[in-house]
Design a binder for these strands. Structure first.
Length: 269
DNA sequence: AGAACCACCTGGCAGC
DNA sequence: TGCTGCCAGGTGGTTC
């Protein structure tokens, strides 16, 4: 579910609702996420106000007066602001705000995480080794080309591993490679500087278009207000194995490292 | 160093 | 209708 555009959609949705608000109570109903929600989370942050809401790769960082919350939505997580907690089965954490509203974290598969971090969150061990943020000016084809010299791993795998460019997930890896006309099996180190430049532009373009559409909804993604995204309507290869590309060729589905990859054998060489 | 695999979970769906 | 098995957006850690 939540890849970078979905996380950014959530960030934009909740930020205006929670920045400046004070946390008056925290209810943790399920601590067992991918990592255990820290004991005493409520005690530590109750009374603090929200100073800012940031995103790094697929992590959301809610900065408070003197610490930060590090939130990852995993595969099925959602973070929304609501008038009241729903008491739904998978609504694990409820932050009550001073305006009577609630920030609510739900995650049926519990692959996500909610941790405490220092206010200077960039040094957090989960964040400090992440690659380049794809929607910044720092990210371009030269970054890809330099990082991938000598790499035999398939370009799709290299995009997904987050070491060079962070936050490109399974859907947008396939879509970006289609946009750049690059075959996902191509060894990352075999891609020319020129094609790396095309790929970097494609990644930015696909992510921006997805954000504009409010993210993709596969099954259950909803934004900070509980609304689904629309970008899944615009997938050109993802999830379309066996159907026809705009060029007429049949889109292929293959598996790389146990993850589905989709591509057009005619458009992508 | 790098690649392959595993683990963490639940829910939805296809097929029988 | 109901059971079983398979698949799914992520990613950190372990093993080879």
């Amino acid at each position: 579910m939540p890849e970078l555009p979905e996380v950014e959609t959530v960030r934009r949705g909740i930020a205006p609702e929670i920045i400046g608000r004070r946390i008056v109570a925290v209810f943790v109903r399920q601590r067992r996420l991918r990592r255990l929600v820290p004991a005493g989370l409520g005690k530590k942050i109750t009374g603090m106000s929200v100073v800012g809401v940031y995103r790094r790769a697929k992590y959301l960082i809610i900065v408070l007066d003197s610490c930060a919350l590090l939130v990852h939505l995993g595969m099925s997580g959602a973070l929304r602001v609501g008038a009241s907690p729903s008491k739904a089965k998978h609504e694990h954490i409820d932050w009550a705000l001073d305006n009577g509203k609630h920030l609510l974290y739900s995650d049926p598969r519990r692959f996500g995480l909610v941790l405490l971090a220092e206010k200077n969150f960039a040094k957090h061990p989960l964040l400090e080794h992440l690659g380049c943020e794809p929607l910044t000016r720092n990210f371009n084809g030269r970054v890809l080309y330099a990082a991938w010299r000598g790499k035999k791993m398939p370009v799709k795998t290299a995009l997904l591993d987050g070491k060079t460019v962070a936050g490109v997930g399974n859907i947008y890896a396939s879509e970006s490679l289609f946009d750049a006309c690059i075959r996902p099996q191509t060894a990352a180190g075999k891609i020319s500087a020129k094609r790396c430049a095309v790929l970097a532009v494609a990644i930015k373009s696909v992510l921006r278009r997805a954000i504009r559409a409010g993210g993709s909804t596969l099954r259950d993604f909803v934004d900070g207000h509980g609304h689904p995204g629309m970008f899944q309507m615009k997938w050109r290869v993802y999830g379309r194995g066996g159907s026809h590309c705009c060029c007429g060729a049949v889109i292929r589905k293959i598996f790389q490292n146990g993850r589905a990859t989709y591509y057009c054998p005619r458009c992508q060489r």
